[in-house]
Simulated assay, not measured.
Amino acid sequence: MQTFSKIRPWIAGVVACLTIGGPLVVMINGYVLMAENDPSHPDALVLMGLLVWGLVGLIGVLTYGIHTYRVGWRQLPMRQRILLTLYGIVFLIGLFIWLAFLGLTPFEWAYWIIYGQAY
Rank of each mutant, 00 (worst) to 15 (best):
V25L: 11
G65F: 00
Q80M: 15
W10R: 12
I7S: 13
V14M: 11
P23W: 02
P23Y: 05
Q80A: 14
Y31M: 10
V56N: 03
A44R: 01
A35C: 02
Q75R: 15
V61M: 08
A35N: 06
P9K: 09
L33V: 01
P77T: 07
Y64S: 09
I20M: 12
V71H: 12
T68P: 08
A44Y: 01
A16P: 03
L62Q: 11
Q75W: 09
L33M: 06
W10G: 13
R8D: 10
I20D: 05
V61F: 09
D38P: 05
M48K: 03
L51M: 00
V46I: 07
M27V: 03
L55V: 15
T19W: 02
M48I: 02
V14R: 11
A12Q: 13
V25N: 04
A44C: 02
G65V: 01
L58R: 04
R74E: 09
L50A: 05
I28M: 11
L50F: 08
I11P: 04
V14C: 09
S40F: 09
L24P: 00
A44Q: 03
G54I: 02
G57H: 01
T63L: 13
P9M: 12
T63G: 12
P77M: 07
P42N: 05
T68I: 10
S5D: 15
G60S: 08
S40A: 11
P23K: 02
E36M: 07
I7W: 15
